[in-house]
Simulated assay, not measured.
Amino acid sequence: MITEREIYFLKRKKAKITMSEIASAIGCSQSLISRYESGQREMNNNLINQYKKYIDNKT
């Protein structure tokens, strides 16, 4: 089963949003986005909500 994290990763890739772009927009590092998307690290709920909202607004 596909996770919500994977869905947003695919939505981000389809919309051609770079990790650097979204990191700048939500105020975190590109490496945090990378580690979050790969499942190596969690982000706090506030950042997750901003991440999802940014992607949703661009797609």
Rank of each mutant, 00 (worst) to 15 (best):
Lys11Ile: 13
Tyr36Lys: 02
Ser34His: 03
Tyr36Cys: 07
Met43Tyr: 00
Tyr51Gly: 08
Ile48Lys: 00
Lys52Ile: 11
Thr3His: 11
Lys16Gln: 14
Ala23Asn: 07
Asn49Leu: 09
Ser38Trp: 00
Asn45Ser: 08
Met1Asp: 15
Leu32Cys: 07
Ile22Glu: 06
Leu32Pro: 09
Thr59Val: 14
Ser24Pro: 10
Lys13Cys: 08
Ala15Asp: 06
Tyr36Asp: 05
Glu6Trp: 06
Thr18Val: 12
Ile55Glu: 01
Gly27Asp: 05
Lys58Tyr: 01
Lys13Val: 15
Ile2Pro: 15
Glu4Gln: 14
Gly27Lys: 02
Met1Thr: 15
Glu4Pro: 15
Ser38Gly: 08
Tyr54Arg: 00
Tyr36His: 04
Ile33Ala: 05
Asp56Gln: 00
Asn46Asp: 13
Ala25Asn: 07
Tyr51Trp: 03
Asn46His: 06
Ile48Phe: 01
Leu47Cys: 02
Ser29Lys: 04
Thr3Cys: 14
Gln50Tyr: 01
Phe9Trp: 10
Asn49Thr: 10
Lys13Leu: 13
Gly39Ser: 06
Ile55Tyr: 00
Ile26Thr: 07
Ser31Ala: 07
Tyr54Met: 05
Asn49Pro: 07
Lys14Arg: 12
Lys11Glu: 12
Ile48Arg: 00
Lys16Asn: 14
Ser31Trp: 00
Tyr51Ser: 08
Tyr54Cys: 07
Ile48Ser: 00
Ala15Met: 06
Lys52Leu: 03
Arg35Val: 13
Ile33His: 01
Thr3Pro: 15
Lys13Asn: 10
Ala23Gln: 05
Ser31Val: 07
Ser31Cys: 04
Met43Trp: 00
Arg5Gln: 14
Thr59Gly: 04
Ser20Arg: 09
Ile26Cys: 06
Tyr54Ser: 04
Lys11Trp: 08
Phe9Met: 13
Ile55Phe: 01
Phe9Leu: 14
Met1His: 14
Ser20Trp: 04
Arg35Ser: 13
Ile17Gln: 07
Asn44Leu: 04
Ile22Asn: 04
Lys13Asp: 08
Ala23Leu: 09
Lys58Phe: 03
Ile48Leu: 06
Glu6Arg: 10
Gly39Cys: 05
Thr59Arg: 00
Ile26Gly: 08
Lys58Glu: 04
Asn57Glu: 11
Met19Ile: 08
Gln40Pro: 09
Phe9Lys: 12
Lys53Asn: 08
Phe9His: 10
Cys28Asn: 04
Met1Ser: 15
Ile2His: 11
Met19Lys: 11
Leu32Trp: 00
Lys13Pro: 10
Arg12Ser: 10
Ser38Met: 06
Lys58Cys: 05
Ile2Gln: 15
Phe9Asn: 10
Glu4Asp: 15
Gln40Ser: 12
Asn49His: 02
Thr18Met: 09
Lys52Cys: 03
Ile48Glu: 02
Asn49Phe: 03
Ile55Asp: 03
Lys16Met: 12
Ile7His: 10
Ile22His: 04
Ile7Pro: 13
Ser38Asp: 09
